[in-house]
Design a protein around this nucleic acid. Structure first.
Length: 178
DNA sequence: TGATGGATCGCCT
DNA sequence: GGCGATCCATCAG
């Protein structure tokens, strides 16, 4: 998998890939793209201490805290580009995920999946690579697109990507296209 | 030095 | 369908 590419391209490529984190694995079903010239992106104001990982090597993790209580996991692409992992279809380590989450659903939302996988700020900047923290490409899949969720800027950019027909999405897509 | 917003989730009605 | 929880990097002065 080539990580060093613009976020929208990487976000598309990650749909259908398998993510493994310390024994827990899932099929990536939903992503969002964030670029340096995107007002909704953390990299938009330039490099800071908080978003340093977004400007680091491709194929590393960018993990940040949102609303003071949830963690969100991103995959870094080209410098200043990142892809938010929003949902997974659980494949392995279900018992671990359930014990960490304590409720259903397990991985249908960025905060949920970070909790289920045990991802925290301690994983910020960690490189993806086998065996404990890695991503393996999947077969090409049908992809749907739509506007991103929960942002207040640049809401017109159709940079939310989903696995067509998947039941494991944080929210339905407005229309099946793309 | 102090105020504020945010790529969310879970509980309430 | 609506709102409270909870923290720190950023921005203004």
């Amino acid at each position: 998998m080539t990580f060093d590419q613009p976020a929208p391209d990487l976000a598309c490529a990650l749909i259908g890939a398998t993510m493994t984190v310390r024994g827990c694995a899932g099929l990536i079903t939903e992503t969002e793209a964030y670029t340096p010239d995107d007002p909704a992106s953390h990299s938009y104001p330039g490099r800071t201490n908080r978003n340093a990982s977004m400007f680091g090597p491709a194929g590393h993790a960018y993990v940040y805290r949102i609303y003071g209580l949830h963690w969100c996991l991103n995959v870094v692409g080209a410098p200043g580009h990142a892809v938010l992992i929003r949902a997974l279809e659980p494949i392995a380590g279900l018992a671990d995920m359930e014990s960490r989450r304590g409720r259903q659903p397990l991985t249908q939302g960025p905060g949920m999946l970070a909790q289920a996988l045990g991802v925290t700020g301690a994983d910020d900047g960690r490189p993806f690579g086998p065996p404990d923290f890695h991503i393996t490409p999947g077969a090409p899949r049908g992809i749907v697109t739509g506007p991103r969720i929960g942002i207040t800027r640049a809401t017109d950019r159709p940079w939310r990507f989903g696995l067509a027909g998947s039941r494991f999405l944080s929210k339905p897509f407005p229309a099946a296209s793309g």
